[in-house]
Nucleic acid binder design. Structure first.
Lengths: 232, 232
DNA sequence: TTTTTGGTGTGACGCTCGTCACACGGCATT
DNA sequence: AATGCCGTGTGACGAGCGTCACACCAAAAA
């Protein structure tokens, strides 16, 4: 963890953030003076579930993984967030403990906003409140959707879904669609075990749905995976 | 479904609602003129998941069940809402389809607020926005929590938890703590089957944790159920 | 080089839980 | 009285998936 960054630089970067993009120049500048910038090394924890916190962050550089640990020592990966994404907003808004773990996947640079600075700002800016409300809606829909997946679908369907999603969001279609995630990571995203993810993938390989080479999963028959997602 | 209610009456009832309680008298009166009141009979659907919608509701009278159907025909009960509770706020705020089903459990009376009336109001009232943001935070935390339960805990733990919750929220402690919900309803709340809920309850009965008489579940050893919740 | 570490690939085993089938009792409808 | 319709109670069976145990390989560390 480290601090750096000038207000001017931060104001510019806030423009990349969905939540603050709508602000006019002076408002961004005002906010920027209240911001401190923090850096995290890859694999460094940013906060832990339950921890008290009074701040939210905007990702200026890098990738942050949001996850939830189980009492039994397993972990669900809730989301991987990138540049311009916001995290920690729930705790900032309701003042209760962190609702999940956040960890730096790569080296990261975050803009940190404190509750005592943001709340007065929000009270003057209903437009920003509405943007935040939209963000919260999106979060809630995603959360409900994930719950429905875990509750209603079997492991292969969930795996197919997450693979299609991750390929879509990561790769513009230069070359064949492919994905590089460890089987353990995939397992943690779909609430399954590494072993079963492996068995499922090899099964698909035998059936020609995917190819696996050099730790890349290459999508050979997107239609087959989509079929698995829609149809039980 | 039916309509009735005068603005004065509605303004008074809005005072019972967490979200609008903070408003001053004139603001509530203004809002009340924009509200229409609708009634639903027991078991009548209020809206269905995916349906377009531009309104949110405040429950003035009765109980509303929010649930999510699976493609395979099963159903998860997400929440039972009572007087003063708000529903449909996600769709009002982001303008997308309903994120769940809502059904009247008892005869209900709802105050319906339309997007085109509420949004201008919110733009002038950041304090109401902030209250809504708090509501959304609570919703999001609940949603994440439910997901964690389904993902991390086995059926008996989930059942114990929901029984303890429902007893707590329904019954002030006059007499022994008890609960009257059908086993099918319990099953739908914890994403399990009616059969396994039955087996679990009878097992607890044999062990003296609960008694079951005349379709009431009587809690005999709260400590034992708490143990099940905390410890896998 | 040897060791360690982390990802991968597989088999065996067993538990949980969903599914199906069927029985019983109460209550409302006819 | 006869007929549904719930809600409840149970047994048998099997699929899905978690767990454990182990082998293989490559890259990093020693």
């Amino acid at each position: 963890m480290a601090e750096d960054g000038t207000p001017q630089e931060i104001a510019r970067l806030l423009g990349k953030c969905l939540v603050f993009r709508a602000l006019d120049e002076p408002a961004r500048a005002e906010l920027a003076t209240r911001i401190r910038r923090q850096s995290y090394k890859a694999a460094e924890p940013i906060f832990h579930v339950g921890a008290p916190g009074h701040s939210m962050m905007v990702i200026l550089q890098g990738t942050v993984r949001v996850s939830l640990p189980s009492p039994a020592g397993r972990t669900i990966i809730l989301a991987d967030l990138g540049i311009g994404d916001v995290l920690g907003e729930v705790t900032l808004l309701d003042g209760r403990g962190r609702s999940a773990d956040a960890t730096a996947v790569t080296n990261c640079s975050l803009a940190v906003l404190d509750r005592r600075d943001v709340m007065p700002f929000l009270e003057k800016r209903p437009d920003v409140c509405l943007t935040l409300l939209e963000l919260m809606c999106a979060r809630l829909r995603r959360s409900d959707e994930r719950m429905a997946e875990i509750a209603f679908f079997d492991l292969p369907s969930r795996l197919a879904k997450v693979i299609l999603e991750k390929i879509k969001e990561s790769g513009a279609a230069r070359g064949k669609p492919r994905l590089s995630l460890s089987q353990s990571e995939l397992a943690a995203m779909i609430n399954g075990t590494r072993e079963n993810v492996n068995r499922c993938l090899r099964d698909w390989q035998r059936r020609g749905f995917v190819e696996m080479q050099d730790r890349w999963i290459v999508l050979a028959r997107e239609d087959a995976l989509r079929e698995l997602v829609d149809h039980p």
